[in-house]
Design a protein around this nucleic acid. Structure first.
Lengths: 229, 229
DNA sequence: CCACCCAAAACTGTCAACAATTTACTCCCG
DNA sequence: CGGGAGTAAATTGTTGACAGTTTTGGGTGG
């Protein structure tokens, strides 16, 4: 799909490298939400000057992954329950649309791949008892494939790059979202069936219901988690 | 709604000021899409050093308003017809959702305000013949109010700040999108009616149809514009 | 007259130093 | 012993300078 070759390779600047490193560190929890980023310290530990580091931070700032307060410093974005709620509504809208588009655009090969993926999920026991710590990755795989099949670059970018990153940040901060693996798996099957039927409306509805259920579950879990504290 | 007072005021840094200026210049067309931004020249004309200017550019880069190529320079994002098409699909998904939420959240006062706005629009002759150059602003007003009524901060931000900015950039670059003012106005009325009925599903459907029609119209106009060239 | 190569100018990438503000600590007073 | 003012340390904001790359222009050879 990509031309790959022919386009001149450009040495990526320090800013690019630093941005990737910071993004990875934030997403995988190495930099905890709410934690402060010291420019001096980070510049030293990354072996770069403060200039490129600051520029990288500005870029993440534009993506809402960090927040800068003038003369105070930058903090990794900390999502409140409300933020997470809002974010999942946005995800419902975007991913529902993506799923509807995918229903029209997916090839037979794509559909077969998706079924194979679901087959592997079904074999895992973690789906049945629903601990699902490393169910996280296959779950993202499933959604990632459907979104990619929408063939809408902007939509793919917004979901897979921006939204998923933000959601991952939250996941690592708070406790696992578990206890719904079985229901989620069945919803995945329903989505796959609608895609196989090439029914955009049904596919969108199934995906939206899936995300709406996840949202309800997550919000309930958060409410139960934070009220006792 | 905002606490306004009590929160200490912070002198906004040069980066903030520069970011606003650049954003405004790009949105209002002063910096044309595809044009190159010279760091030296801009720094000189804005009266700041290259450091803050570069940081401001990085922030806009995160928002996809400009694009940087290593060792070459930064260019104002130039949307292709495909980009615009993708973008409008995203807008359909997000603004449809926002409109559905607004149907539940809008107060009677909000609805009255919206009706008053529509009444003013109906009086303008530009709606009837449909030149609609400065119809642009009232149109954004209408959409802006509905989106704001969704009470979803993330959604509001994504639509009113990010998406509308990008769309405005395109509008100024290419020819006016006209000839649909009458139909658009009627669709606005239909949306308002659904909101007044507090019917989320109908409101979402009406908004999505409205944006889908606009998209079709715009894409057709672009195809007619560029093929002869 | 065109194509190619080489040198100079212009520009971007990076860095280290300086200025301004915030934070932390210490000392003094009540 | 508690509170507050003042000072010192640390951190962020900004700047100017240097290094590396790209582009431009001219000159030479075919």
């Amino acid at each position: 799909m990509n031309d790959a070759l022919k386009r001149p390779i450009r040495a990526q600047s320090l800013v690019d490298v630093v941005t990737e490193r910071l993004e990875a560190a934030i997403v995988n929890g190495e930099l905890a939400p709410g934690s402060r980023l010291s420019e001096q310290g980070l510049a030293l530990s990354l072996g770069v000057s403060r200039g490129p580091l600051r520029e990288a931070i500005r870029r993440l700032e534009g993506r809402k992954l960090v927040q800068r307060t003038t003369n105070i410093g930058v903090h990794v974005t900390q999502l409140t329950g409300n933020d997470l709620s809002d974010l999942l509504v946005v995800r419902e809208a975007l991913e529902g649309m993506a799923c509807g588009l995918a229903a029209s655009a997916m090839t037979d090969a794509d559909l077969d791949d998706l079924d194979r993926l679901l087959g592997e999920h079904g074999d895992q026991e973690s789906v049945r008892d629903g601990t699902g710590y490393y169910q996280q990755s296959p779950d993202f795989d499933f959604h990632f494939r459907i979104v990619s099949a929408s063939r809408n670059e902007r939509l793919i970018q917004m979901l897979c790059h921006d939204l998923y990153d933000l959601l991952r940040v939250y996941r690592y901060k708070s406790s696992r979202f578990s206890g719904r693996a079985t229901a989620a798996f069945e919803e995945h099957l329903r989505i796959a069936a609608a895609l196989r039927a090439r029914d955009p409306a049904a596919a969108e509805a199934a995906m939206r219901a899936h995300i709406r259920n996840a949202r309800t579950h997550i919000l309930a879990q958060i409410a139960a988690d934070t009220t006792p504290v």
